[in-house]
Design a protein around this nucleic acid. Structure first.
Lengths: 226, 226
DNA sequence: TTCATAGTTCGATGGTAAGCGAAGCATTAA
DNA sequence: TTAATGCTTCGCTTACCATCGAACTATGAA
């Protein structure tokens, strides 16, 4: 009968995992650069650029040039509404993530989520910290116990600057590859930097992958037992 | 930060043209059989079956067996809301249909839309009828003029049974391939049957295509000049 | 200048999924 | 029974598009 406007085009635009990740990242309202969005989606900047121009052409995004940066935001509130509607539906139905975008297994194992550790290792760390009672679930977010404080001091993490930040110290963050939580917040961020400093791991260029070396991985697993 | 539920899966589900066509057809609220939906989407029943099971697994559709028929409906109101939201957005942005599903050019030329003629020829017929003042746009839908009545009687279409039907006599229907209107309603349906009876055209099996033969096409073009 | 960083464009590759024919199952009609 | 219809499953082909490397443009820094 009536065939209506083109839902398929819109759906396919949102239907790509990399693009969906970028959109959810932008749903926070923040303006992000192309490179940041590439990291968020776990793809190279070239790929991201292609996706971004498609989404802009499709009316999902807006672009603001500032110096040599390009800041992307959602185009309107309408985009947000559509995304919210879809997220609500997907959450209700408990959709499993099937076609996991760039299917790098390394990405599932350990990767950066903004500035903290995600993936199998990230989840393991969270589990370990909770099991040892270093962290404890509170009404709103996560709390740090006395034992935890001691543990992190032992691990040479400096709290003072962290507590002054506006960002919450501990925060849990849902992991898409495991559908489990890992540690975010400024503490999560500090831990990751500490891993870098200790020489346990370093970031792979142009990717979200955090590459642990053999010794580093061994030490990590020992520090955060299950 | 948070990666939320799987929008990509839902998007890709809706993002296929064939599936999107089925969903919009079901948006009317009617329960349709697999074969009907196949026709609606312009694909074979095998393909439709595959799509339908995917959408059912994805929680978009519900299936009701009745004898040897399978009636499909949208799963809940939530599905409808999501679709409506997407349609609203797409309409506002004036999205063009780019990836036209089964890209049979014959399908764009002349096809069945439920029970009336769509595609290039359908649009041409509508234009011609309007230009000659046989049909006239009214506040709600389309009206039949005196001249029109004469023309259709000349064309040997019997009005009496048509006017008794609950379905509206004239109705305009948006054509996805042209983004223009063509004639629906019981009159549109009667015209198509008349073309079959005159031997101008016949339906291609397992497809929405209406195949005009050479003489039939010539006569059609003469009867409905632009 | 020269170098570095942010981003785009181009070309080639590969994986994925839509599509269909053929065969099979299930239900109804005769 | 047999035949016909509605629908599914299997196997295969094809087409699209996400992905990335390499080369290029643009802006800023030294």
């Amino acid at each position: 009968m009536k065939e209506g406007p083109d839902i398929a085009f819109l759906g396919s635009l949102i239907g790509d995992p990399a693009r969906a990740n970028m959109l959810t990242a932008l749903l926070s309202g923040k303006a992000l650069t192309a490179t940041e969005l590439a990291g968020e989606a776990g793809v190279t900047v070239q790929t991201a650029s292609s996706h971004l121009s498609k989404m802009e052409a499709g009316g999902l995004l807006r672009q603001r040039k500032q110096g040599r940066y390009r800041y992307f935001t959602l185009a309107d509130d309408d985009v947000g509404s559509v995304l919210e509607a879809m997220m609500g539906f997907a959450a209700k139905k408990g959709h499993l993530r099937t076609r996991t975008g760039p299917k790098d297994p390394a990405l599932r194992y350990s990767r950066v989520c903004y500035n903290h550790l995600a993936g199998d290792l990230g989840v393991r760390m969270m589990d370990s910290l909770l099991a040892k009672n270093f962290l404890t679930p509170e009404t709103e977010g996560l709390g740090l116990t006395g034992d935890g404080k001691a543990f992190f001091e032992e691990f040479e993490i400096d709290f003072e600057p962290l507590e002054k930040l506006r960002r919450p110290l501990c925060k849990s963050c849902l992991d898409w590859s495991n559908r489990r939580s890992h540690l975010a917040g400024s503490l999560g961020s500090a831990l990751l930097t500490r891993f870098y400093d200790l020489g346990w791991a370093k970031r792979v260029e142009n990717s979200r992958i955090v590459a642990f070396n053999v010794a580093g991985e061994k030490a990590f697993l020992k520090t955060f037992p299950v």
